[in-house]
Design a protein around this nucleic acid. Sequence first.
DNA 1: CAGTCGATTCACT
DNA 2: GTGAATCGACTGA
Length: 216
Amino acid sequence: MPIARDFFDRPVLEVAPELLGRTLVRTTSDGPIEVRITEVEAYAGEADPGSHAYRGRTERNASMFGPPGHAYVYFIYGMWFSLNLVCGEEGTASGVLLRAGEVIKGQALARERRPKARKDRELAQGPARLATALSVDRSLNGTDVCAGPGAPLSVLAGHPVSPDRIRNGPRTGVGGEGAAHPWRFWTDGDPTVSPYRAHVPRHRAGRDKAGRQAGA
DNA sequence: CAGTCGATTCACT
DNA sequence: GTGAATCGACTGA
């Protein structure tokens, strides 16, 4: 049985840490793949400078404004997908980015999709890796994850991580004002948690007109 | 309508 | 540790 929808119909900062340890099931024509969630990030609606919803509703982020318990999938860096679970009341735009997990079922399928993974723990170690391992793409944007067991994507109760084993810190890859919020949550000591990387602007960062590094 | 750069990953030094 | 890959949404003119 999937998790009840009202689990997601709460503030995202409550939901995000409670997703750790849950089971995410991806059902494909080739069979099921299951992941135990070990790392997530919260994105808190239109008021959150780090969120895709910060500048209001667009075609791309529309599913974040939709009902809770559905997927928001976006395409990034020209080649990857990332998977979020929409939280809070319909009309608001909060979501939880699923950043990493341990593949606990369907490892053979996951490995076919992630041939570059050297070790099992790398199969879903990172948001785009997780999406790739589970064959998550645009076609799953807006999918209900609280529907029946046969649904393409589903979140099961799993084994929630007790609060004393949950750590939190700044969100990976989020710059500006959004970097201040410690809204990344992970399971302490879990080998599938992805390494933290600070946000790096692409071109201009720290350069003056002469092309030298700014500052001291 | 052209320019910019992203909630990243991988190969290479 | 650094930079390339690769595309499309968003921005500002």
